[in-house]
């Protein structure tokens, strides 16, 4: 098997950067995220998953959509080119690869193709890193994810001692490894040990049960301590709601942009006439949990939670989806 020495990785990323935009897990000014290689920051490949999820590689927090010019009689629209060089996402974890698969469902299937997303996604190559040391907040195995092998990766990578072994999974992946050839050596790494999780539970029957729990009293207990901030939705690798707004510059010129939105905010569900169908924390919390565990599985056949543990780690009041799931499993429903 081919592999790369840990010490050669910066050089390899430098080389890839000449013909591609390379995104790698970096800690910059205290925040870990998938950032453009070449910026000042520390590569944090072996550490926990990044605070900011890699979804912004294909679905940016703020993305310009098109420019407009309002004339006397008509409006002129000018497209904003979304093309660019290849996008190498290096060191993405299997949980985060799954999240991109969930975004693919939203932005590319059921007869809707989002061109902005598609352009970025088509340009992307995912180099996934098998995860053998989960954090205390990790629970991907309970969400049906193999932490050592990412379905959907173009290249799979595993750490062993001072090397990373590499295996191409797609043609895009093979091309990428070909470019890395000068840095590769033959390695004989044994397969990494199966990681142990401190958080483990069964998801069996949870979606079906939640279909009968819209009016259940569990929500009355769960919403109260929520602060109503947007941390969980913004650090979530699968949350994908966005708002579309415009920026007027001058003389009828401006542009439309879209930006991440959060279902935890009151404005999210505010309607033009002033009515707000989710006017308090309870329906908002219910919507977020049901979207992850019921609505998304109903529509796309997969969970909208990957067990990455970011919300569990970052929520200031410990609104813990794993505890919620366990409580749902313990609920006895009247037949």
């Amino acid at each position: 098997m081919k592999g790369i020495l840990r010490t050669k990785i910066p050089q390899a990323l430098d080389a890839l950067s000449s013909g591609a935009q390379v995104l790698a897990p970096m800690k910059i000014n205290g925040v870990s995220r998938f950032a453009c290689w070449g910026q000042q920051g520390e590569l944090v490949l072996g550490a926990s998953n990044t605070l900011i999820p890699p979804k912004d590689a294909v679905f940016g927090q703020t993305e310009k959509m098109y420019k407009y010019q309002m004339g006397q009689e008509a409006v002129t629209i000018e497209e904003i080119p979304q093309d660019g060089p290849q996008l190498v996402v290096f060191g993405i974890r299997p949980c985060d690869v799954r999240s991109i698969q969930a975004l693919d469902q939203v932005f590319l299937t059921k007869g809707f193709v989002d061109q902005i997303y598609k352009t970025k996604r088509d340009r992307s190559v995912l180099v996934a890193l098998g995860c053998s040391q989960p954090q205390q907040t990790c629970f991907c195995s309970s969400m049906g994810i193999n932490p050592l092998d990412a379905d959907g990766a173009d290249v799979m990578m595993w750490e062993s001692g001072d090397t990373y072994s590499l295996e191409a999974r797609t043609d895009k992946g093979k091309d990428l490894l070909a470019k890395l050839e000068p840095f590769l050596t033959d390695v004989n790494n044994s397969s990494p040990p199966s990681p142990k999780f401190s958080l483990e539970f069964s998801m069996e029957g949870v979606t079906e049960k939640l279909q009968k729990m819209f009016e259940h009293s569990i929500w009355d207990k769960w919403y109260r301590k929520c602060l109503g901030c947007g941390i969980c939705t913004y650090v979530c690798p699968t949350c994908h709601c966005f708002d579309i707004q415009e920026k007027n510059i001058k003389d009828g010129q401006g542009y439309k942009f879209r930006c991440w939105d959060s279902c935890m905010f009151p404005e999210y569900s505010l309607m033009a006439g002033g009515h707000n169908p989710r006017d308090s924390k309870k329906p908002r919390i219910r919507n977020r949990f049901l979207h992850k565990l019921r609505y998304f599985p109903e529509r796309y056949g997969m969970l909208l939670c990957t067990g990455c543990g970011r919300c569990l780690r970052e929520c200031p009041v410990n609104m813990d989806i794993t505890r919620f799931i366990r409580e749902v499993r313990e609920v006895t429903l009247d037949v």
Binding site: N29, G30, V31, I52, Q61, L227, G228, C229, G230, I231, T233, Y234, V235, S262, F265, P316
Partner: peptide
């Protein structure tokens, strides 16, 4: 500028 450019605009600081 460096600090504020990190802001996610989650409003947790305001809500708490």
């Amino acid at each position: 500028a460096q600090e504020y450019s990190k802001c996610l605009r989650c409003f947790a600081c305001r809500n708490v």
